[in-house]
Design a protein around this nucleic acid. Sequence first.
DNA 1: GCTACTAATGAAGTGCTCCTTCGTAAGTAT
DNA 2: ATACTTACGAAGGAGCACTTCATTAGTAGC
Lengths: 389, 389
Amino acid sequence: MANVRGGDLSRLRQLNALAAIRALREAGPLTLTALAERTGLSRPSTKEVVDELAGLGWVEEVPPSPGTMGRPARRYRFRADCGHLVGVDIGGHNIRAALSDLDGEILAETRQPVRPDDPLEERLAAIERAVSGCLALSGRAASDLWLLAAGTTGVVSPEGRVQFSAAIPAWRGLDLAGELARMFPCEVLVENDSRLAALAEARRGAARGARDVVFLHVGRRMGTGLIIDGKVHRGFGAAAGEIVMLPEARWYDAPDHLNTCAVVPPGTPDEDAAGFTLAAARDGDPAALAAVGRYVDDLAVGTAAMVLLLDPQVVVLGGGFSRSADVLLGPLRERLERACVRLPEVRASALGDECVVMGAIDYAVDHLDRHLFTPDAGPSLPLPQPAGR
Amino acid sequence: MANVRGGDLSRLRQLNALAAIRALREAGPLTLTALAERTGLSRPSTKEVVDELAGLGWVEEVPPSPGTMGRPARRYRFRADCGHLVGVDIGGHNIRAALSDLDGEILAETRQPVRPDDPLEERLAAIERAVSGCLALSGRAASDLWLLAAGTTGVVSPEGRVQFSAAIPAWRGLDLAGELARMFPCEVLVENDSRLAALAEARRGAARGARDVVFLHVGRRMGTGLIIDGKVHRGFGAAAGEIVMLPEARWYDAPDHLNTCAVVPPGTPDEDAAGFTLAAARDGDPAALAAVGRYVDDLAVGTAAMVLLLDPQVVVLGGGFSRSADVLLGPLRERLERACVRLPEVRASALGDECVVMGAIDYAVDHLDRHLFTPDAGPSLPLPQPAGR
DNA sequence: GCTACTAATGAAGTGCTCCTTCGTAAGTAT
DNA sequence: ATACTTACGAAGGAGCACTTCATTAGTAGC
């Protein structure tokens, strides 16, 4: 039981203001009557609420839609642009950043190439450049930022410390949340990248609308993200999704099947090898198809464990190899069909490389929704003065 | 985003009444001033709310606590006895039922022995007898029941139909929720038994207070229940937790290690065999210890998959073999320690055979809380006329 | 270009809920 | 018996939302 707090009249007003904001965010610009219908309030009350919100800067009037019968109604919209969010994807080879408004609408994106063995300072500097780039592209200042969410490879502690990262050696033990908080004058969230990717697919990608989603990052490294009941599942120690560590799940070495196929030209570096095999498989090469078969055999074991355990609505295939989803999806479905009680939908990522940044943005939007736009939670409305442009 | 509904003054009153009820349920009998403090309302308002609730029958006055300074304050309590819930555990060999008040406090319990191959009608009649027994023991009528929650072995569809049950052949395809609704004049919920057991352990058993719990039913049949973020996890098709179906998890045949041990007297029926091995292991018999070791080896594989995937706070060992938890816990912890990123607490069930009935009650209480005692949900308060005794 | 119709606006009046304040009541300590 | 402590109950006041009605600003038809 969460709240046992009652409230007085001003709380009622707050509730109604929140309801109005939610309605406007969901349904775009609305006339007073439409808004009144949605919120269940009378028109005069709605007007008063909207006036107050307009005074605070949360809501503004837009030109009425012409061509209607009768007197044209004034229309209002939520000012999603009164605050800004940043999402960052910290990968081994790239740092991506995106800036969005409060609705998660992307306004600017940047990318900074890095190398896995770059020293710590260089990598942090690249993050700073990526975010600054977004601010510059969209003409905002760092002080306009309300919230920054970052996704990184590796196991991230509940407090935002990187426990371990195979892809970025220098990252180990870093207090990433602390470093980011020093760099940017706003609240900072840090999460594992696969979890954010899962969230993005569940919100705007291949699994839109699903409440229970399993995201598989298939690539040279394997990773998973779980969305359960619409929320990112972290686990008690924020270590959920590490099934790749289990030898019996046969994930850890699964990519080797693709790397060691005969169609890979000798001397190809490991990181490019799988691409040859997947491409050859698409062209029907028997050796490549066999290798892909063995790969999917292994992939399906861990996946079946997840599906049997969680019974998700959708399984999303993301990560580097998901560019070859056409080659992988069929075989994977077939094996899951045999192993599982109920076959979930199995789809390829719809967001590709943007997955993690998008997820970071969505994660930030969620955070905001929970802490600002939800009754019975946090300081509620009039806190972050929405600055006019 | 759930609700975009605003509200008027009466809604505010409803909110405050709900807050009062929640406070009273959480903290037992309270004086007006104490209640006012908890709800954040002024004393006069609290009084008015309490008077209204008393008039509706939700709240009643109890004698003031004597021996205090100043004028003794009137005290009020939530009338948990104004409605009743029934939990039913439908197992292969036993039907258990329990009757509780609205707080989940058990008032009566009964058990009806059945046989796995009993015909459908006989089993349904046994359920009726078990519940009637509870009603008789506590002196209530069937019309006092608000809600019945039943747990059964097997896969249960979201609508309460039994898809499949290995333990109760006659159960397959049965519209259990429908049958129960015909038998009892109240709302009916049906869920898988391991999930309910998990809920009970998370609410009042070995994992009390934990939000993420994995419950392992270890016995002649294996089963699992997941509590995620404090709620029962069903999955999209209500088929979550069926990891036993995966050969690589090595659960399905795991009990064979115990059945085929040399310490089991020849001719022992399969269902009693494991008991001999576990008992011998407790006495230090080397052959039995080796068999238990092999059993836990297998058990640990599927368990590690669950732990790695979900990172729960607690793993609870329940089911028939959990009576020998002292023999199992140590080896299981040791193997999980090696396999997992973070070792969760591993504990034996605290509720034993009562697990599922308790879980059914807790499930019913949860349902009530969500649909009756939560703002923004359902018809809210004054619906089920709380009948006076 | 004028009139009829439509739909939104704005202001006035009403009712409900909660708040604060103050005098009264019912106990215990000295 | 008196003083002190704590709770109760009534009265007055403020805030919020509701309903109602006259007014305004458009479109459609003649």
